[in-house]
């Protein structure tokens, strides 16, 4: 098993290297440079050239790439041209916001999906199952950003139950208020994300439960006289839990990629919104850092899922 995991990690290394080169080249290919914005009648062209040279923007790309990688390993992702702040510090601040939102969304997703999946599987073919199937079907088809827009309109503006921008209220002074306000701001996006992200888990759990219902160990338990409730709680659910946990990795990557939309709609200052803003300002250093971070997080998410699946399912190990 360790061999499988090790091999999996070894494959990741060239992937990350290729990704970093690709990201770097794409950022370089973007039109304009960080100083285009400061060109005005008063700006001295010589001064701008000097700045370009100072920042190494005239060097050949492989030299620039090499500098970038060396700095990367020193934990230095460069300076944001837009915010005049080290990228690491900038992203660290935004990442906390995104992690709060994503983490809370994940917890809610599981809290919703687990009971629904078991319930649907238990009442296979009956009314609750049909209702849950229709629900997963609807949530699966509708594009997520449309739901976000409708959600913020109905609950944010029409009813006014939730805040529509920001991550924290300016009135919050004590730490209790701070946490409360933070929580209040992520509540609506997290609920929407959870409501519309349950499909995979529900469907998988449902078919697991249906399969388990017909398996020998459940029949034995029934024959022994174990109450039905306990069979579901202790036998079937326990058995399906690990593969379901494996979905966590995929869920994280899905939520992170959705964060660009969520954060834009809710003007929530996380990494997704930072990315969209940096694109309009051609803030290379931030763009490259963010794409790289998201790519690596994607990798780690799938790795996590694969490792859990390898632990659970010996057939994958042999391959």
């Amino acid at each position: 098993m360790w061999k499988t995991i090790l091999r999996r990690i070894l494959i990741m290394v060239p992937e990350v290297i290729i990704l970093s080169i690709l990201v770097f080249l794409l950022a370089k290919a973007m039109p304009g440079d960080p100083f285009t914005g400061s060109i005005n009648p008063k700006a001295d062209p010589a001064q701008l050239h000097h700045l370009m040279k100072l920042n190494g923007l005239y060097d050949p790309w492989y030299q620039q790439y090499w500098h970038w990688v060396v700095h990367l390993f020193h934990g230095n992702l460069g300076q944001s041209y837009q915010y005049q702040e080290p990228v690491t510090r900038l992203i660290a601040g935004r990442a906390t916001n995104t992690l709060w939102l994503t983490g809370f969304s994940m917890i809610l997703t599981y809290a919703l999906a687990l009971p629904m999946g078991v319930f649907a599987g238990r009442h296979e073919g009956k009314l609750p199952d049909t209702v849950i199937r229709v629900y997963t079907y609807v949530t699966y088809c509708i594009p997520f950003f449309v739901i976000l827009v409708l959600g913020i309109w109905i609950f944010g503006y029409v009813f006014g139950w939730f805040p529509t921008t920001g991550s924290i209220s300016t009135n919050a002074t004590t730490w209790l208020q701070t946490i409360g306000s933070r929580f209040y701001h992520i509540l609506l996006p997290a609920i929407l994300g959870a409501l519309f992200g349950t499909v995979n888990i529900v469907q998988y759990l449902r078919s697991e439960v249906i399969d388990a219902k017909r398996s020998d160990y459940v029949r034995t338990a029934r024959a022994k006289g174990v109450p039905r409730k306990d069979i579901y709680r202790h036998h079937i659910f326990r058995n399906s839990l690990l593969p379901i946990a494996a979905f966590a990795g995929y869920s994280i990557t899905g939520l992170l990629n959705g964060s660009i939309f969520t954060e834009t709609v809710f003007s929530y200052p996380g990494m997704g919104l930072l990315f969209v803003n940096s694109i309009s300002y051609r803030d290379y250093t931030v763009i490259t850092a963010l794409v790289l971070i998201y790519g690596i997080l994607n990798l780690l998410g799938t790795l996590l899922s694969d490792i859990i699946l390898t632990l659970v399912d010996p057939r994958i190990r042999i391959e």
Binding site: I11, L19, L26, M30, L256, N257, V291, N298, T302
Partner: peptide
């Protein structure tokens, strides 16, 4: 499959946005 894995790793929305801004 390696190409597939690599494509799966890319943050899709971000890559598309970057490409859209590059193309003149």
């Amino acid at each position: 499959q390696r190409v597939y894995d690599f494509m799966m790793m890319l943050p899709m929305t971000m890559m598309i946005i970057v490409l859209v801004t590059i193309i003149p």
